[in-house]
Design a binder for these strands. Structure first.
Lengths: 227, 227
DNA sequence: ACCTGAACACCGTTCAAGT
DNA sequence: ACCTGAACACCGTTCAAGT
């Protein structure tokens, strides 16, 4: 019996339930990471070695489970952002953040699909505004202040550009077969670097035709109120 | 009776069948354009005013129907490419092509979804290689030859960059509600222009970390042999 | 409390029955 | 020939029955 555990935290799951929850998360990360969002909850449950019903007892639906995975990724992104801000050089910090963020996204098919347009959860996306947004904004603002990027660059620009590159990475992600010399898995970095050249401060930069979105508008766009 | 028609072209569909085919294509363009790839064939058939079975008599499956829509879009893209090549100014021709191509893609949710990563048909994608690829390659090669873009730019780069921007457009495509001042529908153009600055010839351009893919490799990646 | 798997609804696809 | 819609399989989700 685990009375003490219960007394310490009355909300804690029973140990077997907690085990199953973790097993489901692990299985989900594998299955969705490999096969993308179209993978089946039946498959996830099978890989986790539990019944489908158990998945639905721990997560109210498929989206909730994906959301839980997203939260883990957001932890990683937050770490990457903080590392970027810690870099004494504003440009290097931004570049390293983008490299790291995209490596995370490119390695997980489901994440890439979500970021490149497929809606998932409508709620719970406070994460972006509350946790990541101030950090990306700071990263962009510092680079602007030091004059290393074009003066009209914003944090939301970085988000949208990440979305674009992530879509490219999702397309080039090899589905099993080998490609001649070039490693297609890294191809997205070519476009990251082209975009970095477009971001860099340069008197030849053209004035942009459309204003950037504010953080709130971006948040609203990426996770609109439920239908 | 339509004996003459039959004699002229023995493969022609009966008039009612041809009508239904067109009705299905129109309905499909509307439904998929509005709601994206997740829209139902039942819905398309209903909007077209025919039974589901009819859809399956004209198109062997959902992918085939989407393919038929793609073919129409490819006609438009080809026209945009030819117009770009006809422009006496290499840079303007390329920019106008990209603007036009992205306007087409941004206006259709299904197209944007397809381009930003969701696989559709495995066959029939000879179109890209056979019809569009030589034209994009020529557009890029001319700009390189005239020294208006970075010397390492290829036609396949334009394709992948389009994919990225298209993903951004798909994300910002408003789903019904208004956004303050900025028109979110046009936001993708902001990123097109940032990318154009990254593409433009400039001695400060950084060497790219990854080689471009050849046309054949790109084709292989975008429409691999069947599983 | 929690677990399981049969059962239901929905959508892609097929096919027997109609014209 | 072509059209139709009921019918089947598959996957998301629920729930009665078991521990």
């Amino acid at each position: 019996m685990n009375r003490c555990v219960c007394m310490e935290n009355p909300n804690a799951l029973r140990r077997d339930a907690e085990d199953n929850r973790q097993r489901l998360l692990d299985a989900a990360r594998e299955v969705f990471g490999e096969r993308g969002l179209d993978a089946t909850l039946h498959d996830v449950a099978r890989r986790a070695g539990v019944g489908v019903g158990t998945a639905y007892r721990r997560f109210s639906n498929k989206e909730e489970l994906l959301d839980a995975l997203l939260v883990q990724q957001v932890d990683d992104l937050e770490a990457a952002l903080r590392a970027g801000l810690d870099d004494p050089d504003a440009w290097n910090g931004m570049v390293h953040y983008l490299e790291r963020a995209l490596a995370i996204q490119a390695g997980d098919r489901a994440i890439a699909q979500i970021l490149s347009g497929r809606r998932v959860s409508q709620e719970k996306h406070d994460w972006q505004r509350d946790r990541l947004a101030p950090l990306v904004n700071a990263l962009a603002a510092r680079a602007v202040a030091e004059g290393v990027v074009r003066p009209d660059l914003t944090g939301t620009d970085l988000i949208f550009l990440q979305i674009g590159i992530s879509a490219i990475a999702g397309t080039t992600r090899k589905s099993g077969y080998e490609l001649s010399q070039t490693n297609a898995d890294d191809l997205y970095r070519r476009y990251l670097w082209i975009i970095l050249d477009g971001i860099r401060a340069d008197e030849r930069n053209s004035p942009l035709p459309v204003q950037a979105l504010s953080t709130d508008e971006t948040h609203y766009l990426l996770s609109p109120p439920q239908t």
